[in-house]
């Protein structure tokens, strides 16, 4: 009870702000200050939310099924990005020559938006989970590389010199000094990477999807149902915010005590 009170007192402004936001949204839609065809009132979105919990119509799956498909997809792309991106970034940061070899390709590929890869993804990976994971991987991969790179570059040179004086080999220095000192930055990279993965869902699900939150938005468009579109967007927003919050907390735990 006291905890709740504390929570309320701490977040009173935020709660008021959210409530005001929703009420304002409701008012401008109900009183048609903004035409109804442009925006649906939040009450309708909430109604649809409860309806979609166990009704697959009209977009083909329940909200939970959409969510499950999407989260699996995001995590698979993120997992691959982690496995490939982090070592790549660490190596680029540590070995100048490797950096020179990889960087030009990385820099040119990086700004290419994931949707542009869809045709090539189909050619290479078909129309199953593979192609969609690839699209997600492309955007999740970038923060993994950049943060691992920056992290290992920030290794204190004094530590490296000390190790060298005590006769450590290059490999030992890389594994025992470089990598541990890069950990906080790598973790930040992973957090950003998961956010990117989640945000690329809609693009990935333009590709041969039959379920998923992005697909739901697409169906909402074809069926001219703005309420479905808004529900899809808000679900993506809410889940994204929760993911960010949870990972932020974990990050604080891990990096605590390291940043002196």
């Amino acid at each position: 009870m006291k905890a709740l009170q504390n929570f309320l007192r701490k977040n009173i402004l935020s709660i008021i702000s959210l409530v005001v936001f929703l009420i304002a949204w409701q008012i401008i839609t109900v009183y048609e200050i903004v035409p109804r065809r442009m925006l649906v009132p939040p009450t309708e979105v909430v109604e649809l939310f409860f309806d979609k919990l166990n009704n697959p119509d009209p977009d083909g799956a329940t909200l939970l099924a959409h969510f499950k498909t999407s989260i699996t997809l995001a995590l698979s792309g993120f997992g691959l990005a982690m496995i490939i991106g982090v070592p790549l970034g660490l190596l680029m940061g540590w070995y100048q020559r490797f950096d020179n070899l990889v960087r030009p390709i990385f820099e040119v590929m990086r700004p290419i938006p994931p949707i542009a890869w869809i045709p090539l993804a189909i050619l290479w990976f078909g129309i199953g989970l593979g192609a969609k994971s690839f699209i997600i991987w492309l955007s999740a991969f970038v923060p993994c590389v950049i943060n691992s790179y920056t992290g290992i570059k920030l290794t204190d040179p004094v530590l490296v010199r000390v190790a060298r004086i005590f006769g450590a080999t290059d490999r030992e220095i890389f594994f025992k000094i470089g990598i541990p000192s890069a950990v906080p930055m790598v973790f930040t990279g992973l957090r950003l990477s998961l956010n990117s993965a989640w945000m690329t869902l809609v693009a990935a699900e333009l590709l041969a999807a039959t379920e998923g939150l992005g697909y739901m938005i697409q169906m909402g468009r074809r069926l001219l149902r703005p309420d479905i579109i808004v529900l899809g967007m808000l679900t993506i927003g809410l889940v994204g915010a929760i993911l960010a919050g949870v990972l932020g907390k974990i990050e604080q735990r891990i990096t605590m005590g390291r940043r002196m």
Partner: peptide
């Protein structure tokens, strides 16, 4: 098995042996 795709992507996929 129905797979939902945009027209242009469907052609590319079909040509590469999908479906």
């Amino acid at each position: 098995k129905i797979v939902n795709m945009e027209q242009s992507q469907a052609i590319a996929a079909f040509e590469s042996g999908q479906g």
